[in-house]
Simulated scan of single mutants.
Amino acid sequence: MKIPLALSAICLSLLSAAPARATSGHDAHHAATPPAAAAAALSEGTVKKVDKAAGKLTIAHGPLDNLGMPPMTMVFRVSDAAMVDRVRAEDKVRFRVEKVGGVYTVTVLEPAR
């Protein structure tokens, strides 16, 4: 049986368009970060020292998964100078560190729950 040329063209266009729709839907699904995953991205630690003049915090922390870093105590720059006013030594915190301009920087800081 012969398939008319127009029907063949329609079938080809549908087959070639289907993967594009599936891929774009798949990508959109993974583009959004669920709230639970965003909260899990925060590390836990204890503030050991606050250096307001330098805009730095010394934090004894657990693993920094986003950086592949094991637990240790480190000095971090803060991305917002107001962060140093919100904490004191021995405060338990949840935080996120990113490498900004080659320097490990606290970009999110909140009290531990």
Rank of each mutant, 00 (worst) to 15 (best):
S16G: 11
A17I: 09
A17E: 10
A18M: 14
R21N: 09
R21S: 12
A22C: 05
S24A: 13
D27Y: 13
D27K: 06
H29C: 06
A31L: 10
A32D: 14
T33A: 15
A36P: 03
A36R: 07
A36I: 08
A38V: 01
A38W: 02
A39W: 12
A40M: 02
A40D: 03
S43W: 00
S43I: 00
T46N: 13
T46K: 15
V47L: 10
V47K: 09
K48D: 07
K48C: 08
K49W: 08
K49D: 11
K49L: 14
V50L: 07
V50Q: 14
D51W: 05
K52T: 15
A54Q: 05
A54D: 12
A54G: 11
L57D: 07
I59V: 09
I59Y: 01
I59E: 01
G62H: 04
G62W: 11
P63T: 14
L64T: 05
D65A: 11
G68F: 03
M69T: 02
M69E: 14
M72W: 11
M72V: 11
M72Y: 08
M72H: 03
T73L: 05
T73M: 06
M74V: 09
V75E: 15
V78D: 06
S79P: 01
S79I: 01
D80W: 04
D80P: 00
M83Q: 06
M83V: 02
V84I: 09
V84D: 01
V84W: 00
R86N: 12
R86I: 00
R88C: 05
A89R: 04
E90F: 04
E90K: 00
E90Q: 08
D91N: 10
D91H: 06
V93I: 11
V93H: 04
V93Y: 06
R96E: 12
V97E: 02
E98Q: 12
K99C: 01
V100P: 08
V100G: 10
G102C: 05
V103Q: 10
Y104A: 05
T105K: 02
T105V: 10
V106P: 03
V106F: 01
V108L: 02
V108H: 04
L109K: 01
E110N: 09
A112P: 00
A112S: 14
